[in-house]
């Protein structure tokens, strides 16, 4: 099996031949979301939020908010005319060297950054956003509904432009210790709009991958129930083995890497990385519903963007022990 065939064997609940890794299984596409959601290299986005480039990616400029009260969102939030953003041209450029043969080999994965909660926090800061969820849930729900309409329109554009197999939707809802908000608040305030976003993607025949960092295991079941087939960046502070056992062929765990552990420290050796990759393969990889995602930061930034000489030997070693 090639990468694509192996991936779809996992999706169809069949036995894959090997444990894939996210660096080799996907053609990841980011140009669309850099226009509609968050500029990767920093700058002002289509909503007027300024993003600053950091070593691990762009983030909203700290302490610069468009508004403080969610009840005021309509005065400050203006959705861009998607016809004017150049999404299709950017997608065409990103895919210009990706031909049909490549499509037969790899899985096309379109990223959609800055989901419902992250966008709210980008507008008004995390503290204000989190307080709003419990102090003014009605305004939050109204805001999320409008934002979901925008995201669905963006996703439809991405799907038309890229013809992807997977859409990975990013929304960080947790710290390393647990969810930012209670599961009840998530379910009552965010989930209804989140659900519409998931269903709009899956109704187009595209696999929905949910990205949430941190310890979010309490709502992974909600993701599965809504139709997500992949949970991305599934980090090791969650009970990954229990989740794999529980959801079996309904959910692929993409992650596993201990991003706070020694293999992610500055100065970790290639051998340390190989050991961590082997640990992931042994602990999570044997059930046929796991994709390794090495989250590696180095002195220059996120290795996904800046590269890292340790990755190649690590992947080589991983690919020698990843057969199932």
């Amino acid at each position: 099996m090639n990468q694509r065939e192996n991936f779809f064997a996992m999706i169809e609940g069949k036995k894959p031949e090997f444990i894939p890794n996210s660096m080799e299984v996907y053609k990841s596409c980011i140009a669309g979301t850099c226009i509609t959601d968050s500029p990767l290299m920093g700058g002002v986005d289509s909503f007027g939020v300024n993003w600053v480039a950091t070593k691990e990616g762009a983030m909203p400029e700290p302490n610069k908010f468009l508004f403080d009260e969610i009840a005021d969102w309509k005065e400050h939030v203006h959705f861009a005319d998607l016809d004017s953003l150049g999404i299709e041209a950017a997608a065409a450029k990103e895919m210009e060297d990706f031909n049909q043969n490549n499509r037969n080999e790899l899985v096309v994965n379109v990223f959609s950054a800055c989901g419902l909660f992250e966008r709210m926090a980008a507008f008004m800061g995390f503290e204000n956003a989190l307080c709003s969820l419990v102090e003014d849930p009605d305004s939050c729900r109204e805001f999320f509904e409008a934002l979901a309409d925008y995201r669905i329109a963006c996703h439809n554009r991405f799907i038309d432009a890229y013809q992807p197999d997977v859409l990975t939707y990013f929304d960080d809802l947790a710290t390393a210790n647990g969810l930012f908000m209670s599961p009840k608040v998530y379910r009552e305030v965010i989930k209804p709009s989140h659900q519409r976003i998931v269903e709009a993607v899956t109704s187009r025949g595209v696999i929905f991958s949910q990205h949430t960092c941190g310890k979010c295991e309490e709502i992974v079941g909600d993701y599965v129930e809504m139709g997500a087939r992949i949970w991305h960046s599934a980090q090791s502070m969650n009970d990954l083995e229990g989740i794999q056992e529980k959801y079996n062929d309904r959910l692929i765990i993409e992650g596993g890497w201990d991003s706070s552990g020694p293999a992610s420290y500055i100065g970790a050796s290639t051998e340390d990385l190989i050991e961590e990759a082997k640990r992931c393969a042994n602990v999570y990889g044997q059930k046929g519903n796991f994709i390794l995602m090495p989250t590696l930061l180095n002195e220059n930034g996120n290795s996904l963007f800046v590269g890292d000489p340790r990755l190649e030997p690590m992947l080589k070693a991983f690919n020698e022990i990843n057969k199932l």
């Binding site: 989190l130 307080c131 908000m181």
Partner: peptide, 14 residues
């Protein structure tokens, strides 16, 4: 202890 979450802590501090 996980009995309350960040928003509840924030509004108490506020």
């Amino acid at each position: 202890s996980g009995e309350i979450f960040v928003p509840e802590m924030l509004i108490a501090a506020k």
